[in-house]
């Protein structure tokens, strides 16, 4: 379970997050909406542990452990992982090697890459010259190898072409144990009950709602969580009246 209590965060001199209270129970996935600059990425980066996001107030707990001061690599080790919107390029590190470094245990990188239609990129330097959609598939591949319990996705659909959209959506669903695959003999009900993965997904387009049933939708507005209710309801409201009007109901 991820629990955030009254979190306040500064980036440089600017306060980017205020009074954030959030609880993602084991097995739950939440979808995060909000206009540009509202603090969505800051929230994910803070949960991941990026040191430039300074927690000035509040605590973050993961599975009961206070991780507010825990370094980024330690958070990765206890099961937090992130798919970035614009990750850096690292020259000289091949994608295959990067995926290898992500994996805690032996895994078949080639087979995983095949699923993501990404084998041609394994020999290329990580993110070097990748298009927006290629970056997203590379991020998914790394995260798949890392296999964290809490998965943070920063706009996983941006830049992805129509052809790969369902591939990305279905992959995320599978990673979050939201897929409808019952081939191992378990019913969907049993599967849902035993779900352990947690997700927090930033989306502008709401595309992910076609692939998973989000347990909750959240709206971040000017650094504060302004609304928390059914994700589809929020998405419809934003589409109809825009963020400003949408958050009025909770103010």
């Amino acid at each position: 379970m991820l629990q955030i209590e009254d979190l306040q965060v500064k980036l440089g001199e600017k306060e980017v997050l205020r009074h954030i209270n959030l609880e993602i129970k084991t097995g739950e996935t939440h979808v995060l909406f909000g206009p540009n600059g509202s603090g969505k990425t800051s929230l994910l980066m803070t949960i991941m542990g990026y040191p430039q996001y300074k927690v000035t107030k509040g605590r973050i707990y993961f599975n009961g452990q206070d991780i507010t001061e825990l370094p980024i690599s330690e958070r990765a080790k206890i099961g937090i992982g992130m798919s970035y919107q614009r990750p850096p390029t690292i020259k000289g590190i091949k994608t295959a090697h990067m995926v290898e470094m992500c994996a805690k245990k032996e895994c078949d990188i080639k087979a995983m890459a095949e699923k993501l239609n990404f084998t041609d990129f394994l020999d290329r330097d990580i993110n070097d010259g990748f298009s927006g959609g290629e970056i997203k598939r590379s991020e998914l591949l790394q995260l798949m190898a890392q296999d964290p319990q809490l998965l943070l996705f920063d706009e996983p659909e941006s830049g992805v072409d129509m052809e790969n959209m369902s591939l990305v959506g279905n992959t995320i669903a599978k990673m979050l144990e939201h897929d409808l695959d019952t081939s191992n003999g378990r019913t969907l009900k049993e599967k849902k009950a035993s779900r352990r993965k947690m997700g927090l997904i930033i989306t502008h387009t709401g595309f992910i709602l076609d692939y998973i049933t989000a347990d909750k939708g959240l709206v971040l507005y000017e650094g504060e969580l302004a609304c928390s209710t059914n994700a589809i309801e929020i998405f419809k409201c934003i589409n109809k009246v825009g963020y400003k009007e949408c958050v009025r109901c909770s103010m």
Binding site: M48, G49, Y50, P51, P71, I72, S73, R75, A76, K77, G81, M82, Y84, P87, P88, I90, K91, G92, I93, M98, M101, C102, K104, D125, Q142, Q146
Partner: peptide, 27 residues
Amino acid sequence: DEILYLMSRGLSEDEAVSAIVRGFLNV
């Protein structure tokens, strides 16, 4: 940002630096 990116994948800071340095030299 490269060091932190690798650290967020579970590498320690030293491991991240060493991977980047080797990558840099690996022309």
